[in-house]
Each structure stands twice: as C-alpha cells, then as structure tokens.
Design a protein around this nucleic acid. Structure first.
Lengths: 249, 249
DNA sequence: GGGCCATGGTGGTAAGACCAATCCTCTTGA
DNA sequence: TCAAGAGGATTGGTCTTACCACCATGGCCC
C-alpha cells in the first residue's frame, strides 16, 4: 500500500504543527498519570504511528520535550520521562542573560530574594528531619574548612536543605536553578577564599534561627549571609582576572 | 581561533550530538554579539552546511532553541532570535507541576516570595518614570471596578511595573513567568470577584509605600495583598466547581 | 497609479535507509 | 549448574531526498 498519491498527506490545515501534536500528546499522558517519573515511552516508530505523525516530526516534538527537561533519550535504550528531583534547565536563563545582558549580580540578587523567602518559610515549617539535614551540612562545613571544594559541596547542600524546608517545591526548584548558575563561577574562585570559617558560622546562625522557629531572624541571617557572600565572591574574582582559559564547553 | 579541530567526524564519540552542535553554534553567535534580538538566522539549508550537519539535525537543534525561547521560526519568513521583553517559557514549569504534583498554591506562594522581594527593591530603586506607570495602573484599576477583565489587565500591568521597578530583570522575568500561570486561572474566576474596590485600594497602598521609599512597608503591603488575593481566588474557585481537567492548548 | 497575482525563497513534513549504542538472550566453557 | 561472553534484536541518532505550505517581493494588468 502506497499513499504516494496526492490528496491524503496534503491539504490538512486543521492539524496543528505536527511536532506540537507530539508535545500535547505526551503532556496529556503525563498529566493523566499514564506516564510517571522514569517511565519509558513507546519506541519512536510506534509512538509516531500512534500519534499520527512521521518519525522526524515525532523526534522534533521529543526534542522540545527534552529541552524542557520533561524527557531524556538514551540511544539504544529508549526515551524516558525525567526522574529525580525537579529541576529547571538553565539553558533558557543563560540565553536570556546573553540576549538581555543579565549580570551575575542580577542572578545573585534574584537568588537572594528567593533564599531569604525560603529561609523564612523554613523557620515556620521545616520538619525535624529537614532540620537534622541542615545541622549535618553545617557540621560538614566546619569539618571541611581546609578543603574549599568539599566545603562548597556542603554549602550547596545546606542551601538545598533550607529550600526543601520551605515546603515549597516550586521555590526549591527555582532556587536550585539560580544557585547552580552562581555556583558554577564559585567553583573556580572558592580556592582563593580565606574566610570559610566565617562562612560556616553564618550558616550556623541561619540554622539556629530556623530551628528556633524565628522566621524574621532566619530571613535576616540569610540576607546578610548572601550579601556578604556576593561581596566575597566579587573580591575573589577581582583577585585573579585573566585566568579564564581552558574552560571549553 | 578554533580549538575544536582535533577529533574529526568519524570515530569520535566525544563529539556532541549533531543537534547539540547547532545549539552550541547559535549560542556562541548570540553570546559573541553576532546575533542580536530580532535578527534573522541564515536559511536552514545554508546554516546546515555552515555548521556541518544535515538539515533534520539542524532543525532538531533549532527546535531545542525554540523550546528555550531563544529563537522563533515563522514558516515562509525565516528563523529569528527572540525579541521583546525577556520571558521564560512556562512549559517546563507546567511539566514539573504535572510530574511532581506542584499545586497552584505552591506557585502562588513562590510568586509571593518573588513579588514581596521586588516590592522591597522597587521602594529602594524605582525611577520616577516607573512610579508614574504604577500610579497610572492603579488609576486604571479604580476606573475599571465594573469591568473585571479590564481590571485584571491593569492588575497584571501594575505588578509588572513593580517588578520592573526592582531594577532586576531576572526577578522581573521570574515573576512574569509565575504570574502568567496564576493569571491563567484568574481570568476564568475574576468575573465572580466582588471585592475589586478593595483590591484596588491594596494596590494603591503598595504604590504609596514604594513611592514613600519605605521598603519594609512595601513588602508588608505586597505580602498582605497576595495573601488575600490567594484567599479570594480560592473562594472564587470554590464557588463554581468546574471540570478541572481539560486544559486545552 | 493602485491593486492583483505569479514566482522564488523559506520553514514544515514525510519517507526510507543506514549507523551506533544498548539490551537481552542464548550459547559455551569452566 | 552457573557464570561469562558473543551474537542478534531493539532503539535512538543521523543523513538524503522529496514535496508541501506559507510569506514576501516585484512585475503585470486593469
């Protein structure tokens, strides 16, 4: 059977973009619960006929979904609904930054707004388990005063724990996305940091405020911490200007 | 200035996916300033040979860029770098919501954190022009007490003006994205709102606090406003239990 | 001179084929 | 009997070719 003849394939204005149909289809599958985290989608060839588009169009739609972080494809294995903690792609933000001239300070400040808010909420709602995680990370920071990279790991985890303590996954996801962009730079400058002890202290105070169920103090401590952290990073970047090379991709 | 001459096309698993090369290429063009807002990209056929991939692969990459909001394609016209105000696609957030069960309340609360922060910053930095826009929108709200949809328009514009007044484009972009998701529902319930006068008053108080350069008061007023707004919307949704599902497009 | 339409360029879709990575099963050897 | 390896089958990744739908421009007709 060859549909090669004209008439069928063409003159089909009612149909939206073929790729759009794919996104819609998968979105429905996910929202209706037929697809959950980590589930595997049908093979492309099958899914294409199921939706009624060609394979290239299907792939185009999957590409869009992948760019949104909704699915991930592994050659030879299949296409899977994204699993793991919720996370926004940072590509879009990066492009916006390049196109509209967002500065690192803008990012940092936005992150600060979010984290200050999350600290306040965490002081109101954090579970004892979540408090325990925060305490652990603070301890880890004190233990890693001499190892900047290790210190940074605990630093990141602490902020993540606070975000989780806010009980708001949207907030936590946004914070994670922004923080990632900030830490990307931080990893290269942290080696020159000389005030890790002070930084650990500040984290401890944040933790104590949250544990004391004092939202206002938690907000203030977090705000001060991030204000100083930004200053510190700025001065560290200033310290060594023209390194930059050797960072492909 | 090409460092990437080492691995050739064959036997080079290190080479990114063809589509990835496209994204990289365009990213470089944008970040280096060779492409700016609204610029048109070369035709697909040309760009494909320029980058060294087939046209389907190129289209795959452009699809990714489009999903990130970096470019938009118009059939028959060409592919253009996104212009207009910075804006994040909300598709990713929607998927995260569906996958991880983000509630509307979560979104609203995250938005509240951002808007409270932006109100505080606006009180510190908003220019007189930006203040004038806020005042105009408040006036518009009072004038549209009897027309819910028109009222909502000014409501949205007011919050946008405050976000702009914060002087932080990242913050403004995030607020816009979240607010859009919230307003989507709001448009269907605002008809049943009965306290538009009160809402306009609250916006006026926010404006006055910002104009008075009183960050703390601005934050408090914004916080109260959004807390009440959430309650109001919840009760309006409760008033008419719709079919929930079935969000087209 | 103004409005209409033909034409070329551009993105959108489709089909078929082949490659590469992965997974699974079956064989083979200890 | 069981484990390790080899093979095939499955699946995503890419390329080639072809055609269609839409848009913009400019020439043509009225």
């Amino acid at each position: 059977m060859k549909y090669e003849a004209e008439g069928q394939t063409s003159s089909d204005p009612g149909q939206e973009q073929a790729a759009g149909k794919v996104v819609e289809h998968v979105r429905r599958l996910i929202e209706s619960g037929q697809l959950r985290q980590g589930d595997r989608l049908p093979p492309e060839r099958d899914l294409a006929v199921e939706i009624g588009v060609s394979r290239p169009s299907l792939r185009s739609g999957l590409r869009t979904l992948a760019a949104m972080g909704a699915v991930v494809s592994r050659q030879g294995a299949g296409t899977f609904v994204s699993a793991g903690p919720p996370r926004l792609e940072q590509g879009p933000l990066r492009f916006l930054a390049a196109l509209h001239g967002f500065t690192r300070d803008d990012m940092f400040e936005a992150r600060r707004v979010l984290e200050v808010g999350s600290a306040g909420l965490a002081a109101e709602r954090a579970s004892s388990d979540q408090l325990a995680v925060m305490a652990e990370e603070v301890t880890g920071m004190f233990a890693a005063i001499g190892e900047p990279q290790e210190f940074l790991r605990h630093d990141i985890q602490f902020h993540r724990a606070v975000a989780a303590g806010s009980g708001n996954p949207v907030l936590a996801t946004l914070i994670d996305t922004l923080a990632e962009l900030v830490y990307e730079r931080r990893r290269m400058t942290v080696e020159r940091a000389h005030d890790l002890k002070q930084s650990a202290d500040m984290h401890r105070r944040i933790y104590q405020a949250i544990k004391a169920r004092d939202p206002e103090r938690a907000r203030r401590e977090m705000s001060e911490h991030l204000a100083l952290a930004r200053q510190a990073q700025a001065s560290e970047e200033e310290a060594e200007k023209p390194a930059e090379r050797g960072v492909p991709s």
